[in-house]
Structure formats: structure tokens, C-alpha cells
């Protein structure tokens, strides 16, 4: 009985240690500063954004601006409905507005980290995948994911395999859209 208890306790401790190690992806402050992929400035910048969650795809636009030294990100559907409005800081975030289906704190912890990696300078190393795209890792455990930046078309793709979530962000390019519009 005592031996079984000891084995069980050991197993629990090992599992906890494994999980904690897996989740300690947060880069230390000693790590080099990694510049933002799309730095937020005090003028409005606009991006096209596509969310794919399972089989559902949602397109929209994302606008960003540095406001009172904080990054403000607002995402709206093409027909104007604001999907979310978030204020992003180096160490935390404030969700100003969010539609019902997206109101989930765990999801927002993941998304805030992703957006912070893209729009703010963060600590961490810059690596490249086999296709030469800049690669950043995000999340941990079930929420771990990758952020890949393709310098050729300036597109950034976030992928969370276990969440079945993909997000693609591309700076808005009026000339591309004009060509689409006249097709």
C-alpha cells in the first residue's frame, strides 16, 4: 500500500515536472530582443486577416495603432461587425470588446501571446524553417504553435495544431485588391 502510494506520488511529480518544463517556453529577459514582424506605430496600419478553425473560415480586416504607448488592435468582419478589440502591452493585455463566441479567457491568453510576437518587440531568438521563413514558437502544451513569416509576400501564418486554429495576416495592399475588384 505504502509502495503503491510512493509510486503514484512519484508519477504525479514526474508528470507535473514534465508539464511545467513543456510550458516554460517563455523566453527570459536575458534573451535577445526580437523585433516585431509588423511594428505598431502611431499611424493606422491595416491588414487582411483570415481565421480558420476546423472547417470554419472567417475573413476580416485588422487595424492597428499605437495609442497612449499601447498597441491597439481591432478586428472587424468584412460587413463591419467588430469581432474583437484588444489593447496589447508587453506583459499583459486588455480585451476591450469581443463577440460572444470568442469570449474565452484561455483562447485570449494564446492569441495575445501570438499578436504580441507579431506586433511588439519581444525577447527570444529568431530562427528559420527549412523553407527560409522566419519561425517563432508560441504557446505551450496543447496551445503550442508556430508563427511563420514569409518575407517574399510579407504574410505571417500562425498555426496551433492541437487547437486546429490557423490565422493568416497580410498587410493590406490596395493594388492587389484593385486587381481583384476589377476581375
Amino acid at each position: 500500500m505504502t509502495r503503491a502510494f510512493l509510486y503514484n506520488s512519484l508519477a504525479v511529480i514526474l508528470l507535473a515536472a514534465t508539464l511545467l518544463t513543456a510550458c516554460s517556453r517563455q523566453a527570459s529577459l536575458d534573451a535577445p530582443v526580437r523585433p516585431a514582424l509588423y511594428a505598431v506605430s502611431d499611424t493606422t496600419a491595416r491588414y487582411d486577416i483570415t481565421f480558420v478553425m476546423g472547417k470554419v473560415q472567417q475573413n476580416g480586416l485588422l487595424v492597428t495603432r499605437l495609442h497612449n504607448d499601447e498597441a491597439r488592435l481591432v478586428c472587424a468582419s468584412p460587413f463591419g461587425l467588430t469581432l474583437f478589440d484588444i489593447t496589447l502591452r508587453n506583459d499583459d493585455y486588455t480585451l476591450n470588446h469581443c463577440i460572444g463566441p470568442l469570449r474565452n479567457e484561455k483562447i485570449w491568453t494564446v492569441l495575445a501571446d501570438d499578436f504580441r510576437s507579431i506586433f511588439l518587440s519581444t525577447h527570444g531568438s529568431v530562427t528559420y524553417d527549412s523553407d527560409g521563413r522566419q519561425l517563432r514558437r508560441t504557446g505551450c502544451g496543447l496551445t503550442r504553435g508556430t508563427i511563420r513569416y514569409d518575407a517574399d509576400n510579407h504574410a505571417t501564418r500562425i498555426a496551433h495544431k492541437w487547437l486546429k486554429l490557423q490565422i493568416e495576416i497580410t498587410p493590406y495592399n490596395p493594388s492587389i485588391h484593385d486587381n481583384h475588384a476589377t476581375r
Binding site: 499611424t43 493606422t44 491595416r46 487595424v63 481591432v74 472587424a76 460587413f79 467588430t82
Partner: peptide, 15 residues
């Protein structure tokens, strides 16, 4: 013509 106005941004988005 659809105009999305967000107060803190310095330009509207038109579709």
C-alpha cells in the same frame, strides 16, 4: 458604400 469608423484610428475603412 460601407464606412467603418473606429474612433482611435486616424482613418476610416471604406468598402
Amino acid at each position: 458604400v460601407q464606412t467603418k469608423h473606429i474612433d482611435i484610428f486616424d482613418e476610416d475603412v471604406e468598402s
